[in-house]
Write a protein that binds this DNA or RNA. Structure first.
Lengths: 302, 302
DNA sequence: GCGCTTTACGCTGCGCGTAAGTATC
DNA sequence: GATACTTACGCGCAGCGTAAAGCGC
């Protein structure tokens, strides 16, 4: 049992002869000398095991077996062309899908501009954004559902076994408080000083909270309130209930006349943003383009 | 714009690597040395224009583009295998169709036994029999609807331009008459003697009638009745209305105690049976087998 | 160091073009 | 004899196997 083999080119040659009914002209169409073309047809007939054409000087026509073979061949050629075209579309960024998983702060702060530009450049590519907390983002990448994730620095090393985390950027955190808050007159704004004031905290699994708690350990923040969403933080600070600390990407949401922001220039409190992806699974062309755009935009911001 | 080319073999190599996730084992499956196999995959990637596999020592896995390509490839392989299998079935006489056009006398006298044997040997092949007069048979072949025709000798040469008629056999005609008819005691039975007796004639376009009229020209038969079907001839002879002349293949229908038959050994009255087919269009394997069987059966009869 | 893939390299033969041969009208 | 396919023949390179070299655990 030997597996018979033939090439797309041979099939193209076959249909050329079916259509043109003439070896000489079909040979030209395939860009081959006539004898070479003749041999090619003969080889194809040998591989399929049956004469496909009746030929004499006057006329070239299909045998009954050739007539049976023809529709299959045309179908094969259509499918082959289609497969290559699909691949080409994907490569040329005319089609495809990019699935990014990112922290809510990054999703809201960085990605809108990036996605807008990406969509303008590659309108045929479907975009999916999963705005979740770090662990969920990483899980999506691990499952292969997201192409890459943009997360912060508190991912557990164990989670990264088969994944690869590359540092994308480092940002300071920022104090957000009512204007005229006493902290604003501090020369060196430290976390320890901040910890003395009533603080609006995020939920336990939030990466900002985890970073803060790690930085001030073994002390603790003066937490007066624990909320889930950043919008709530804004309102609470605005209402004078307390102060908070937020990452750079959220700052644009705190541009109120009643709220002031100051960067926290402390060496042990930096927000590291990582790109997490499969270690040994390459990105699609579209995903690479997206990542490139993200890096470029980030450079523009800093 | 260059048409990219690849072979079925390359696609088989592709799926082997997808399934086995290991170059060495996939190479064995394809019966190639590992370096040669590696080069083959590389060539395929070059022709499609994108890396299809992520490989390092530990793991081999599809890229996003490879993942897109995979289902297309499997479909292509299925279709290619199917096309070859169909062709093989046709060649091995497991499937197919044979369409024979034949004179009613041949259809009823010769073909039942042949078709029975053919069907026993090749039960997967569909059989079509058009039992018509010569002209209609030849028209079917000319249109390409029938594979070949079995007709008698009065086909016009003009009708045969693109067709090829090969003599299959020659038979005598036979007198059919009531037992004890005076003609039966004739030593040399000639058409001229028959013409004197009341004669049951077939319709004008019947090949037997045309042969008779040509043979006795410029005399004419003593026609008492003109009928369409052979069964009617039988009944009329049986009833004593007249005598008739029929071809060999119909004789089995005249085996009545009241009817006698005698061959007409006259040199100018011979029934030539021809196989008519397209001059430059080969027969399908199944049709050839059928024709071969016909020739063989004919040999057995004589 | 071990397992797996890639690179290096020589060789064989497939498949090409040119030219001559053959068949059909 | 003109036209069109087939055969003959030499040549180049694609693609093979063997051997050696990277490379990631």
């Amino acid at each position: 049992m030997s597996a018979p083999d033939f090439s797309v080119r041979e099939l193209r040659a076959f249909v050329a002869l079916v259509d043109l009914e003439n070896f000489t002209r079909a040979a030209q169409a395939i860009h081959l000398s006539q004898p070479a073309y003749s041999a090619l047809i003969r080889r194809l007939e040998e591989t399929v095991g049956v004469r496909l054409f009746d030929r004499n000087t006057r006329r070239v026509s299909l045998t009954p077996e050739g007539r049976l073979f023809e529709p299959s061949v045309r179908q094969l050629l259509r499918d082959a062309d289609r497969a290559l075209a699909d691949l080409g579309d994907q490569i040329e960024l005319r089609k495809g899908r990019v699935h990014v998983a990112a922290l809510p702060t990054i999703s809201a702060g960085l990605l809108p501009a990036v996605f807008k530009e990406f969509r303008r450049s590659f309108p045929g590519i479907d975009l999916v954004l999963s705005d979740r907390l770090s662990e969920a983002c990483i899980a999506l990448v691990k499952e292969g559902r997201a192409d890459f994730a943009l997360v912060s620095n508190n991912a557990r090393p164990g989670d990264l076994d088969e994944l690869d985390a590359r540092l994308l950027c480092r940002h300071h955190y920022h104090l957000v408080c009512p204007t005229h808050h006493p902290l604003l007159s501090e020369k060196r704004l430290t976390l320890r000083k901040i910890a003395q004031h009533p603080f609006i905290q995020m939920t336990r699994n939030n990466s900002v909270r985890q970073a803060l708690e790690a930085a001030i350990h073994p002390r603790i923040m003066n937490t007066v309130l624990e909320v889930e969403h950043l919008g709530t933080v804004i309102s609470m600070v605005n209402a004078g209930l307390g102060i908070s600390v937020v990452p750079t990407f959220t700052l644009h949401q705190f541009q109120w006349p009643t709220i002031a922001t100051r960067p926290l220039i402390t060496p042990n409190l930096l927000r590291h943003i990582y790109v997490v992806r499969h270690r040994e699974r390459s990105l699609s062309v579209a995903s690479s383009a997206m990542l490139e755009l993200i890096v470029r935009d980030l450079g523009r911001l800093q």
